[in-house]
Measured scan of single mutants.
Amino acid sequence: KRPMNAFMVWSRGQRRKMALENPKMHNSEISKRLGADWKLLTDAEKRPFIDEAKRLRAVHMKEYPDYK
């Protein structure tokens, strides 16, 4: 299984929150909104998620060195 990218790290928490706030919203609509919201974030706002994704990638490479 591939490590999560920055968007996936960020959206994991946001998806739960949005689903709780909008229980009747379909998952596909939540995904569209999350994508739009992510694009509106500044680089500074994205930085912690980018850093976490880099950390996850490094751990994955160490655990699965032959993964392609």
Rank of each mutant, 00 (worst) to 15 (best):
R15G: 09
N5Y: 02
G35S: 15
K1I: 09
L34A: 03
W38C: 05
K17Y: 07
D37V: 10
L20W: 02
G35D: 15
N27D: 13
M25K: 01
A19G: 06
E29W: 00
K46L: 00
L56Y: 02
D66C: 10
D43H: 09
Q14I: 09
K68V: 08
K62R: 11
T42L: 01
L34G: 01
V9R: 00
D37G: 09
F49A: 05
F7D: 01
V9K: 00
P3F: 05
T42K: 04
M25L: 10
A44E: 14
K1V: 11
Q14P: 01
K17C: 04
D43I: 07
Y67H: 14
M8K: 06
M18T: 00
V9F: 02
L56N: 13
E63P: 09
A6G: 14
R33T: 09
N22Q: 04
M61P: 10
S11D: 05
R16W: 06
R33Y: 02
R12K: 14
K46W: 02
V9N: 02
M25E: 06
K24D: 15
M61F: 09
A6Y: 00
A58Y: 06
E29S: 04
K46R: 11
A58F: 05
D51Y: 03
E63G: 09
Y67S: 14
D66M: 12
Y67M: 13
N27K: 09
W38G: 03
I50T: 08
P3G: 10
P48L: 03
E63R: 08
N22M: 05
F7E: 06
M61Y: 12
D43E: 11
M4L: 14
G13T: 15
N27L: 09
M61Q: 13
H60K: 09
L56F: 06
R55T: 10
N22Y: 08
Y67W: 10
S11I: 05
D43M: 11
D66G: 13
A58C: 11
N27C: 09
N22W: 04
M4W: 07
M18D: 05
L56R: 04
Y64H: 14
A44M: 09
R47V: 03
S28E: 15
R16G: 11
I30P: 01
K46N: 05
E21Q: 09
W38Q: 04
A53D: 03
D51F: 03
P65Q: 12
D37Y: 07
P3C: 05
A6H: 06
E63Y: 06
D51I: 09
H60P: 13
V59T: 13
M8I: 10
R2D: 14
I30L: 08
H60Y: 12
P65E: 12
A19H: 15
A44L: 08
D51C: 04
T42N: 11
H26P: 12
P65A: 11
A53K: 00
L41T: 00
R12Y: 14
K24P: 02
F49C: 06
I50P: 06
K62P: 12
A53Q: 03
R47S: 10
D43T: 10
R12I: 13
M4F: 02
K1H: 07
M61W: 06
K68M: 10
I30D: 05
W38N: 06
N22I: 00
T42F: 00
A53G: 02
L40Y: 03
K17S: 08
W10D: 05
K62G: 11
P3I: 07
T42I: 03
H26I: 01
Y64T: 13
E29G: 01
K46G: 00
A58R: 09
K1P: 10
H26G: 14
E45F: 12
P48S: 09
K24R: 08
W10C: 12
V59P: 11
D66F: 09
K24V: 05
S28P: 02
M18R: 01
E63H: 14
K68T: 10
F49K: 03
L41W: 01
Y67T: 10
A58N: 04
K46V: 04
E29A: 07
V59C: 12
K62D: 13
L34W: 00
N5K: 04
M4H: 07
K62I: 05
M4A: 10
F7R: 01
Y64W: 11
I50K: 10
K62A: 12
T42A: 04
A53M: 00
